[in-house]
Design a binder for these strands. Structure first.
Lengths: 120, 120
DNA sequence: TGCCACAATGTCCGATCTGACATACACTGG
DNA sequence: CCAGTGTATGTCAGATCGGACATTGTGGCA
């Protein structure tokens, strides 16, 4: 999710009333966050399974180690585009990407906190 | 295979695991484009099925008519993020998004038929 | 033909994202 | 302890993306 949207929403007391069809906006936002978390988790899983370091993955996708770290951390400044790029660089097929999307998000571990930070 | 062993192999210059390492950059990029096309097609299908105009969808996702047009046209200046935003605004679930990803890309334009749009 | 609603296209400026770099942290083996 | 390897975090200039606006194209319909 983009901070810009958050800003726009925050501005002038935005109303859920005229939101998309059946979904309230916050729900839509939650879904968006879930998707990003699912993707970032998948990146880390695939990377470690392949025995690659962040730096190696970064080289594969022509990025940098620090950005891969942010990717996997679910940093708010990483786009779904970049997440998909990473997964593709890790050899994920469209079917595998679909599976990632349909599976549940990050398992509820009580020790998980920085999500709040991700509120897009 | 254990990650430790994979790591050693990878370090030795071997490509471990699936086809990831074998994919040329252009192939990866092709896959990326395919994904975007599949998503943009899905946006148009869902929108028309719901009987919405581009302007109405734009309002739902706090965007503009012109950007929705670009979205559906597969313009390269639109991100996957925005495509997902649009689909979510159209009420798509994660499972439906997954289905979009796994289904084949845009069919050949020669076989394109307005009725098909109505059906789906 | 002239409207009218919808869609497509081009441009622009501000917001966002990205790679790169620096640096700090975590862990391991010596 | 230290050195080495991998990961996390902060910053920033430049690239990309976004909404908005203007304009044009298109297909009805009277």
């Amino acid at each position: 999710m983009k901070p810009s949207k958050q800003k726009r929403l925050a501005a002038a007391g935005w109303r859920v009333g005229d939101a998309a069809g059946f979904l309230g906006l916050s729900e839509a936002e939650d879904l968006f966050v879930e998707i990003k978390l699912a993707l970032s988790d998948a990146v880390r899983k695939r990377r470690t399974k392949l025995g690659l370091t962040q730096g190696e993955l970064a080289r594969r996708m022509q990025s940098s180690q620090s950005r891969v770290a942010k990717l996997e951390a679910g940093d708010r400044t990483v786009s779904i585009d970049l997440l998909v790029h990473a997964l593709v660089a890790l050899g994920a097929t469209r079917q595998q990407l679909a599976r990632i999307l349909s599976s549940s998000a990050r398992p509820a571990t009580s020790s998980w906190n920085p999500i709040t930070r991700l509120v897009m």
